[in-house]
Amino acid sequence: MRIALLVTCLNEALFPRAGMAVVTVLERLGHTVAFPPEQTCCGQLHANTGYAAPARELERHTEAAFAGHDVIVTPSGSCAAHLRAHTELPVYELSELLVDVLGVTDVGARFPHRVTYHPTCHGLRMLRLGDRPQRLLRAVSGLELVDLPEPEQCCGFGGTFALKNPGVSGAMLADKCANAVSTGAEYLAAADNSCLAHIGGGLARRPGAPKPVHYAEILAGTGAAA
């Protein structure tokens, strides 16, 4: 299958490994990945911060960049949710593509570590990913998946919420980090690098805490280098 990758602006700016991991996984499964070069940002940041007109321009820009592609994949639950709500683009979050479209749960990865999974809010409540990411992770050779307490609690990122309401965001982050540390996991995985930047930034200040990793990197078998 020919699949177009929407890498997302955040991953381009800060976390390219998530995009590389998606390419690695899909090519290993025998698919062809395209990278439409005009892509930049889906408009979610502008829309949620209160800027409707620039958001619409970026949505239109993304539609033009991906015109003609029948299947689009992105390693971001929130960008997938935004585009699905505001454009006609056939966008899938990675676990939806793998489990629902390609019918795969074992992607042939190996990651011999203790991992806990944080289901991000957009994945959980807007995309209804359910346990798709966990099913993919359980099929990874050598991986031990441990439950995160209070998994459905928001981590406190919320885009510009983290900057506009730093106190509340920090209090939510502290609770998420305490729950993550209590699992004794080596890695905390999630489907959105925006939440992971926030949680990971908190975990970096706690000794013995799990390291943040996008679950695509685990599926690519490259997460050990994180």
């Binding site: 800060l14 590389m20 965001s169 920090g170 990971g200 930034g201 200040r205």
Partner: peptide, 15 residues
């Protein structure tokens, strides 16, 4: 941002 959490740095090689 850094009042409550560490900030990530841009990567050496772009996507």
């Amino acid at each position: 941002w850094t009042a409550h959490r560490d900030a990530p740095l841009p990567p050496p090689e772009s996507f």
